[in-house]
Design a protein around this nucleic acid. Structure first.
Length: 588
RNA sequence: GCGCCCGUAGCUCAGCUGGAUAGAGCACCUGACUUCUAAUCAGGUGGUCGCAGGUUCGAACCCUGCCGGGCGUGCCA
């Protein structure tokens, strides 16, 4: 009996009882869980029925409960006030459920609700003049997380990275390198490529303070770039390659994957023809200075300071494109190239307004897929002293942070390895997995829209509501399962009727809820939901094995039953971690 | 001014989209390693769910209005 079938069985029984007691089918039934596990394994609320059957909910519950005879999976149905609490037979509740969970393997928690849906998740989208920072890590793990959630629910996901590889800021590092770089390269200086280029960007900023006319040289270089000057293009390509090399390393460490790369140098001219279409349709208008603009509806965008209608510029007076121009074109290209059903943009909340405009403009252009574009907005990552500011050097560099987490984890491991039994290689492997788990979980555990106040102490913590805590719970399960293999239990059949204490009930309940949690997380594009549920499972399994011996249980058939529970718990923890992009360790 | 987001324990957050007595973690006390790894577990302290109305049998959750904070607000990305 599958989890889904148990639910259906309960609902079917309730419906049949309503039919015979009240002569009609219930309009709406909601299956939930009682607040205390002792009350039952599932519950059906009778409030909605009260309206339909014109009786008080407690009486309805009574009537239905008396109508349902235990059968199949259902052991008992009891009315408690307005609730119908259902108990499921142990061999189904524990036996069948654990079997199902363990048997599903990689597919655990997967559904097909998104079958046939193609969705693009664009995330990270860095500039090529600076290395990645903490904000990019939040973006990256979030983008990767929602991609995995969508995949788990049957969607076909195209993970895209729109690289901002052109513009003044890129020219600045190019110019600085040309002037003062002395032919150095990442290789000759032993510097990671993105940092190498970023250093020249910083150097530019310093020099510019002393000689403000550098700005003109930058503009001249940008013009050369735009007119396809071969030397400038060559320099540009070379420096961008250095950056990509550096980025690739960081992506790899963070486990970020992409199926498609878009480059703004190739997309920045897209969209101009769409502007013409908009003009032809009368959706856009030409302003006095020749710029193409769109008027934004007041009910959605509010007004300007003076109370007049808001306006968005789509094309400058000189015919050059702006940010939205490019994005309009790219949006269309994405749908055309990949036959998308949905297009998700993982971009920080400071761009909320931009995407509100972009989507409205797509709608004004008449694209039927415009409503399928979605800005997955996430809050900023602030430091204890406020916003990260590159000018003040308070930006937390991604590679530095990764290295720091790795070192901290390694220290912890060595401290616990008092006998020095672990090889250096093993320590490194574990330290990396644990360090990454800490930072990823820390950034994913709150809802995307919330601003994170980056607390260095808390972010490196390995206790409590953290990634390492969850990894540890898994490692403990794995340890018990390993030991079980050395015992002679092969011929013993588990007796699930022996289970049923509070910790066991709480654990199985959490496991049963896993598929719904995945579905909700995917629906809300919120890996935080996975974090919360995962932590509950980890906490519950910790409580369980602390209080109840598994291998030393009273009888072999109880040992087998508890092992099944541990096995299923480990599977759920592993899958949850994997949905968050976090590795599991068999030993910690 | 206008738009969007946020406001729940000292701090950081959950709260299954309206249901059973508001839950965790951190911090602070007190206990538990001869027993499947103490990155663990048990117990304690701690809340007018920003404020005021409204809808409902029932509101932290929905509506309205305030207050406080954040991000934005036509030719940057």
């Amino acid at each position: 009996m599958l989890i889904a079938s148990i639910k259906t069985e309960i609902l079917t029984a309730v419906k049949a009882a309503c039919q015979s007691q009240f002569g009609q089918q219930p309009e709406a039934l909601k299956l939930g869980y009682p607040p205390e596990v002792e009350l039952g394994d599932f519950t059906v609320e009778c409030f909605p029925l009260a309206k339909q059957f014109r009786q008080n909910p407690a009486q309805i519950a009574q009537a239905i409960a008396s109508e349902i005879e235990p059968s199949g999976s259902i052991q008992s149905v009891r009315a408690v006030g307005p609730y119908l609490n259902v108990k499921i037979h142990n061999h189904v509740l524990f036996g069948d459920v654990c079997n199902e969970i363990v048997g599903q393997g990689e597919c655990l928690g997967s559904t097909d609700i998104g079958q046939g849906q193609r969705v693009m998740v664009e995330y990270l989208s860095p500039n090529t003049n600076k290395p990645l920072h903490l904000g990019h890590i939040r973006n990256g793990v979030l983008g990767m997380g929602v991609s995995k959630l969508l995949e788990a629910t049957g969607h076909t996901v195209v993970k895209a990275n729109l690289v901002n590889d052109r513009g003044v800021h890129i020219c600045k590092s190019m110019l600085a390198w040309l002037k003062w770089g002395d032919g150095g390269t990442p290789e000759t200086t032993g510097t990671k490529g993105d940092h190498f280029v970023g250093d020249w960007y910083v150097r530019y900023a310093q020099e510019e303070e002393r000689q403000p006319d550098l700005e003109q040289e930058t503009q001249a270089m940008l013009r050369k770039w735009e007119s396809d000057d071969p030397e400038t293009l060559e320099l540009w390509k070379m420096m961008n390659e250095w950056v990509y090399g550096g980025f690739a390393e960081t992506y790899q460490k963070l486990g970020l994957e992409f199926d498609a790369f878009y480059y703004e140098s190739q997309t920045y001219n897209l969209g101009k023809d769409l502007i013409q279409t908009g003009l032809d349709k009368g959706a856009f208008i030409v302003a006095e200075d020749g710029a193409v603009i769109a008027k934004l509806p007041i009910d959605e965008f509010g007004t300007q300071r003076d109370g007049s209608q808001k306006v968005e510029t789509l094309l400058r007076g000189d015919g050059t494109s702006v940010y939205v121009t490019q994005d309009l074109g790219t949006a269309k290209m994405k749908f055309d190239e990949h036959q998308l059903d949905r297009s998700i943009y993982v971009v920080g909340s400071e761009q909320n307004y931009h995407f509100q405009c972009l989507f409205k403009l797509l709608d004004m252009l008449g694209f039927e897929w415009a409503p399928e574009c979605y800005h997955l907005s996430y809050g900023m990552v602030n430091l204890p002293e406020g916003r990260m500011k590159s000018r003040e050097g308070t930006v937390i560099d991604a590679d530095d942070l990764i290295e720091e987490m790795f070192q901290l984890a390694a220290d912890e491991i060595r401290e616990r390895d008092s006998e020095s039994e672990l090889s250096d290689e093993e320590i490194q492997k574990r330290a990396f997995a644990i360090g990454m788990a800490a930072i990823k979980f820390y950034l994913l555990r709150v809802r995307p829209e919330l601003t994170i106040n980056f607390d260095p102490k808390e972010s490196i913590s390995f206790d409590g509501f953290t990634g390492p805590y969850c990894q540890y719970a898994y490692a403990r399960c794995a340890s018990i399962l390993r030991r079980a293999e050395t015992e002679d239990l092969a011929s013993v059949e588990p007796d699930f009727s022996l289970l049923g204490n509070e910790e066991e009930l709480q654990l199985i309940r959490a496991l049963i809820q896993f598929p719904e949690v995945v579905e909700e997380a995917a629906r809300d594009l919120s890996p935080a939901r996975i974090c919360n549920h995962l932590f509950t499972v980890a906490q519950t399994v910790n409580q369980f094995y602390h209080k109840h011996p598994v291998l030393a249980a009273e009888s072999p058939s109880l040992v087998k039953a508890r092992l099944a529970l541990i096995n299923a718990s480990a599977a759920v923890i592993k899958k949850s971690l994997s949905l968050l992009g976090i590795e599991t360790l068999e030993e910690m």
